[in-house]
Design a protein around this nucleic acid. Structure first.
Length: 287
DNA sequence: AAGAGGCCCTGATAGC
DNA sequence: TGCTATCAGGGCCTCT
């Protein structure tokens, strides 16, 4: 369940290792990801350099030396692994790369570099690789995505005007990538807890002050999670197989039935399904 | 236009 | 033990 922080953790380690490296060979074992990998994908990437690894929202953007882009989305269960070409062990030359585990099944895509390779593993195949031809197409590809929480465009004025004449609840909109991009189901619950806003609250009832809280805590939670190496619930691992640490910091997620972590609050964390997604909140301090 | 619902897929777990 | 059902949730699509 990679959300923005998990993808950013992957981006950082990936950029460090494959920036300015040339793709020697591409191996695809299963083309049937979220979108079918086209037959020319291998020849397209072969002998190209990866200029750098960028990220927008939950998308990784590999800048290719022929002025195109390779998008990589991890879907729900995608992981990226960097493995030595010689002894098949995971690369362990930085502190980030420890606890090496390479899955045996579902290694669908390999990008082979001079002395190591990148392996894309994805049991559920909700992730994808996509070649984007130019800047214009890249812009178009992301046109359905709203600003990231860090963007200055994500401000009180924007939020209030977006919520005009909308009838859904706030949890729904935090997951709506057209409204704000990068937040997923886990962090949506965490953000609303910190804001003391009930996830079922209709956005038409939100005040200026609430919007400001949403802005502040969205940034805070995501940045904190990045710092902690992301969250590992079931699937997410870094490029070396290392798990994240942020799950230990969850205030509400997967804490149904437990006591509210707010010191002065006697509430209990409840689990509720909102638009087909499990949602956690405190029944007392989230109004 | 906005919102509700469904589908893609596999693995872990629960219940019988 | 082995079977089936349920849940996990990101993105995108259709239908109303």
């Amino acid at each position: 369940m990679p959300e923005l922080p998990e993808v950013e953790v992957v981006r950082k380690s990936l950029d460090k290792k494959i920036k300015q490296k040339k793709v020697k060979k591409v191996i695809i074992r299963n083309r049937n990801l979220r979108f079918k990998i086209p037959l020319n994908f291998e020849s397209f990437l072969k002998n190209q350099k990866i200029i750098k690894v960028d990220r927008f929202s939950k998308y990784l953007i590999l800048h290719i030396s022929n002025k195109t882009y390779c998008l990589l989305h991890l879907g729900m269960s995608g992981t990226v692994h960097l493995v030595s070409n010689n002894d098949k062990s995971l690369i362990t030359n930085t502190s980030f790369y420890s606890n090496p585990i390479l899955p045996k099944k579902h290694n669908h895509v390999e990008l082979i570099f001079e002395d190591f390779k990148l392996i894309y593993n994805d049991p559920r195949r909700f992730g994808f690789f996509q070649i984007i031809d130019n800047d214009f197409e890249l812009k178009k590809r992301f046109s359905h995505l709203g600003p990231e929480p860090f963007s200055t465009k994500f401000n009180v004025r924007y939020i209030l005007s977006f919520f005009k004449r909308k009838k859904k609840n706030i949890k729904n909109f935090l997951l709506d990538q057209y409204f704000v991009s990068g937040i997923g189901n886990i962090y949506a619950s965490e953000i609303l807890f910190l804001c003391k806003i009930n996830p079922s609250k209709k956005v038409s009832k939100l005040k200026k002050k609430d919007c400001q809280k949403i802005i502040n805590f969205s940034k805070k939670v995501l940045l904190h999670a990045i710092k902690k190496g992301g969250s590992t619930i079931r699937d997410f691992k870094s490029t070396s197989g290392k798990k994240g640490n942020f799950q230990n910091k969850f205030k509400v997620y997967e804490r149904g039935g437990l006591k509210c972590k707010r010191a002065e609050c006697e509430g209990t964390i409840k689990k509720k399904t909102i638009s087909m997604r499990s949602t956690f909140y405190c029944n007392i301090c989230q109004k």
